[in-house]
Nucleic acid binder design. Structure first.
Lengths: 212, 212
DNA sequence: ACCTGAACACCGTTCAAGT
DNA sequence: ACCTGAACACCGTTCAAGT
């Protein structure tokens, strides 16, 4: 045999990372493998399936244990803290590959409720909480990635301020909009977690939650 | 003159609603206007700009006053209630046209902080609250639309249960997954609004909020 | 100002045929 | 099982030229 499905998926991820989602064509993936475009259809029924497999690899491992985010480890985590870490890990994983958030968000919309991360989150914060956290995380990551891309294009035209190691504004907030989006993510996450905590106190358990 | 920019945008919205986002090509929009594809480039620099204009029309009017959602009217709305209504109206507007959520979400990512709806929301619940609500609303609407589409395809293959007017499950929750998504939206919205309320009580004002 | 006609450099997918 | 070669029915965008 010459190429396996795993070869095709990882070649596709390489093409994605170098050319972005709109540059990630079946023909380019085939070229990356030195193969005719039609050969891909031996491994995958269509492009959409390939994108779903790519999404799985991108988020692989997120949501298992406290994976991805270090910090106050040592057991005794509350569900809220676990959920928080999972969302942070999820965002990092998506941001690690070009247009990763788009790929993952689109694939996730198809099998809502069926993904491994969503099910783990649901154990901690309930089904509604899990969905709310995921929608927010996807949207915020997509937005971050869009602005990073715009910034990387804008940098070639209008550097705006000379130095690379840019200072914070006088209010202590980062003036770089992409750093601002990183900080903003955690604040939005905390808003949702606070809401879930109130709900938890009021009802004694998260809606549809399994933990008690 | 033969066609105006508004003609192009509304023709594009018609094509979108009938063929979906992936069937909404420049060539089809041109055909809808009985014009050569190249003629469109007199009105619009590229497809992306056209999609942005379409997004503006789709959400046009949302976020003004209590528009879109009736109910306990008569003044005296809190910022939370106003924000809630705006999100409901936003979702309805996006769901009203095929793939509307995708079109609006993509366009919104480009000008984060600049949209009219986001600015109104920010007055009521602060900048972080506005972003959190919008990301959630976009993601939830995209998911709803994906499942509606899947359901409309699945209905042709496996009706699953015979009757059209399907009953609710024994737990009182709708068994139809797309009705479930409608109900789930409000629950997630309330989680976020509860979080914003706690924050408001703790700090005396929403983060970056203008109202006090 | 608004449009045509023709072209360029691409797409995803199918299918018979090879090894 | 895995791939080639050729084809089909499309894309977005550019550009000279018409009225």
């Amino acid at each position: 045999m010459r190429n396996t499905l795993a070869d095709v998926v990882s070649a596709a991820l390489r093409v994605l990372d170098e050319n972005g989602l709109e540059g990630c064509s079946m023909r380019r993936v085939a070229a990356e493998l030195d193969v005719q475009p039609s050969a891909l259809y031996h491994h995958v029924p269509n492009k959409q399936s390939l994108l779903a497999l790519m999404a799985d690899v991108i988020v692989d491992g997120v949501g298992e244990r406290d994976a991805g985010v270090p910090g106050e480890n040592g057991g005794g985590h509350s569900g809220m803290a676990l959920a928080r870490n999972a969302c942070l890990a999820m965002r990092s994983a998506m941001l690690a590959v070009r247009d990763g958030a788009d790929v993952v968000a689109t694939a996730a919309a198809f099998r809502l409720g069926a993904s491994a991360v969503e099910q783990r989150l649901a154990e901690w914060v309930g089904a509604d909480g899990a969905r709310t956290l995921l929608f927010y995380t996807f949207g915020q990551a997509q937005s971050t990635q869009t602005h990073r891309h715009a910034a990387s294009l804008g940098a070639l035209i209008g550097p705006e301020s000379g130095r690379a190691g840019q200072r914070s504004g006088t209010n202590g907030a980062p003036s770089d909009p992409v750093l601002e989006l990183d900080a903003s993510f955690e604040r939005g996450l905390d808003i949702i977690l606070t809401g879930l905590e109130s709900e938890h106190r009021a009802t004694g358990a998260p809606t549809n939650g399994i933990l008690h």
